[in-house]
Design a protein around this nucleic acid. Sequence first.
DNA 1: CCAAAAGTGTTCACGGTACACCCATGC
DNA 2: GCATGGGTGTACCGTGAACACTTTTGG
Lengths: 229, 229
Amino acid sequence: MKPSLRDRHAVAVSVDCLVFGYDEGQLRVLLIQRRRPPFEGRWAIPGGFVEDGETLHQAATRELAEETGIRKVFLEELQVFDAVDRDPRGRVLSVAFLALVKPSGLKLVAASDAVRAAWFVLEEVPELAFDHRGILDAGLQRLRADLLRRPIGLELLPRKFTLGQLQRLYEVILNRAFDVSNFRKKILGLGVLQPTQDYETDVAHRAARLYTFDLASYRSLMANGFRAF
Amino acid sequence: MKPSLRDRHAVAVSVDCLVFGYDEGQLRVLLIQRRRPPFEGRWAIPGGFVEDGETLHQAATRELAEETGIRKVFLEELQVFDAVDRDPRGRVLSVAFLALVKPSGLKLVAASDAVRAAWFVLEEVPELAFDHRGILDAGLQRLRADLLRRPIGLELLPRKFTLGQLQRLYEVILNRAFDVSNFRKKILGLGVLQPTQDYETDVAHRAARLYTFDLASYRSLMANGFRAF
DNA sequence: CCAAAAGTGTTCACGGTACACCCATGC
DNA sequence: GCATGGGTGTACCGTGAACACTTTTGG
């Protein structure tokens, strides 16, 4: 690149990964505690600057692994945050990503710029660094909208799950109740769930059948269009 | 900003405005012919580099005015395009915006980096510069999805319009037919259209009533959620 | 036996779809 | 009077909402 182009139009670009996880019947956000200024010690959404030669998606994946130890997650562009004064160091443009992780094997390993990494229930999220509260709000809105349009909720559940778990996930995230019978009919009618031969164990009531997500029929469903509720 | 931050993480950032217009029963895209390399003489989506101290939205508005003379339009973030080799000059990250303009008073004034500015029907769009074909495809998909979710189509029509015009707009963009009676019922049932006392003139059939868009009820509709078809 | 959640069936109301029909205007 | 598109009414069907009921398991 000629120096002129970079000098005249350069902007520092960072990525921020808003990570949602679902565990113990609760939707949780992954936050890190900042090791360095600005906002040293304050909780924030994991992220960092884009390096030369990597795409934003790659940068987001890398930062997530570095700061929290999380790998292999669903990761999708959310929105750009570009208020000119959003970073006290100067003009920094941030591309926010929305990430969804399965609860199984969630071993958080804080490192790099992060002192700690921890999951927070929405109601207990502390004051955040930068404009990260805005990112969280935007991401939550997007998650709720997406849940109704595509089987994105499955990214938050283990490989095998019961319909009860899935229903509770919908109820918790959308903050509304569903009729058991109607929920089953609707979800199974979509044809994206594959029943297995396995059942729940050690529960104080009739054991529920476990289902898995059927990728093939998911694709054909998306090709057409899909609408839950 | 400390030099170190800018030097190490700076990326050239541009905005591109994908502008759709609807006229004579056709959906059209606004393109400009590039005055300078790279891709000199090639048609492209209007856009340019972000200047210091302006937001992306401001930059998009400015570039659109400079290159085409268009002002006051609906303008919304579409998506970031960040392939590392998308610009032969080096790493340039582009934030694409989706713009919708009303056909009335469309005076195109090419200037700045643009030799010409012109409207193209989708089928006649030539080969485009950079990855602009991808931006166009993404924007079209977004426009179609949005049309079903919110009364965005009204941004493409003049202030007063007939239900027939609106229906044709939906049919052209979504490439499917709607039953006249059902379309009227559905749209009017939403309550976002205000009937006026005016009618079409000089048509070889019964004159159609003109409607306007009611912003107030639109807001309450969005607050809840809305679904056309 | 009881509590608790899985799982099934039935009824009802609403909204989308299809289609038939009348109205107004220019040529 | 005929073609053209505006505008209205109705009958049917599928889907979602509400709810009653049975099944299985642990305590």
